[in-house]
């Protein structure tokens, strides 16, 4: 079921669930901003921001180019990011992030998930900072994450947790509202637990250092 939903989302983003806004430059010098909703060797159909559909012959068009000064990243976004976490254990998790790209380069998000370590569940709640290398529809970006791993079960034993990670990713916007991300990185978790009733003495503390490589692919909704 989860896989089906993911496929549908991917298909939606690729199929032009809205196209990218472009500047179409005609040979007579005029420029039209709008989404190119159809294009073939004979004609190009453009939908403008006010909802009008304009059709031009191909030989009337000089170039179709990105909108000057347009920042594809800017604004709030929601990121759904399935990932494979591998190391001594391998697990698949789904991370949800909500954030905002504040300018051409920088963005920030709050993320959460439910993860499992040695049969104990944790809820990582973290802040992610993003730096986009290019101001383009397709660009690599660097992300760093830091946050707290809240215990969910066995609260008697499971104590504080800490996470710190970094990744190198690529984002590709297929429309003004949808994009795909792909990337990989490293994450360190420090999880603390107290002994089980079988372990003596009871005032000992166990500290687990969890090292994981993460491979992820995700969807961005703007």
């Amino acid at each position: 079921m989860k896989i089906n939903i993911l496929i549908l989302l991917l298909a939606a983003s690729f199929s032009g669930f809205g196209q990218l806004t472009r500047t179409t430059v005609l040979k007579n010098g005029s420029e039209i901003k709008g989404k190119v909703i159809h294009s073939d060797s004979v004609k190009v159909k453009i939908k403008t921001k006010d909802g009008s559909n304009l059709v031009y012959k191909r030989n009337e068009i000089d170039t179709i180019k990105p909108v000057s000064g347009y920042n594809p990243h800017k604004g709030p976004f929601l990121n759904i990011e399935p990932l494979i976490s591998t190391g001594e254990q391998t697990n698949a998790y789904l991370h949800l992030k909500a954030g905002v790209n504040i300018n051409r380069k920088w963005g920030a998000a709050i993320g959460a998930s439910v993860e499992n370590y040695a049969n104990h569940s944790r809820l990582p709640l973290y802040l992610e900072l993003k730096y986009h290398i290019f101001n383009h529809y397709i660009t690599p970006y660097i992300a760093i994450q830091s946050g707290y791993m809240f215990p969910i079960n066995d609260l008697e034993q499971q104590k504080e947790g800490f996470m710190l990670g970094g990744s190198l990713n690529m984002v590709c916007y297929t429309s003004d509202h949808f994009g795909i991300t792909i990337g990989g990185g490293y994450r360190f978790n420090r999880l603390v637990r107290s002994p089980s009733i079988w372990e003596l003495p009871q005032d000992d503390i166990y500290i687990h250092h969890i090292n994981r490589i993460e491979l992820k692919i995700g969807l961005i909704f703007k």
Partner: peptide, 15 residues
Amino acid sequence: VIVSGCKDKTFKKHK
């Protein structure tokens, strides 16, 4: 190498 180096470690803080 990187993946194989990702060993988990457990420390015990105790008296």
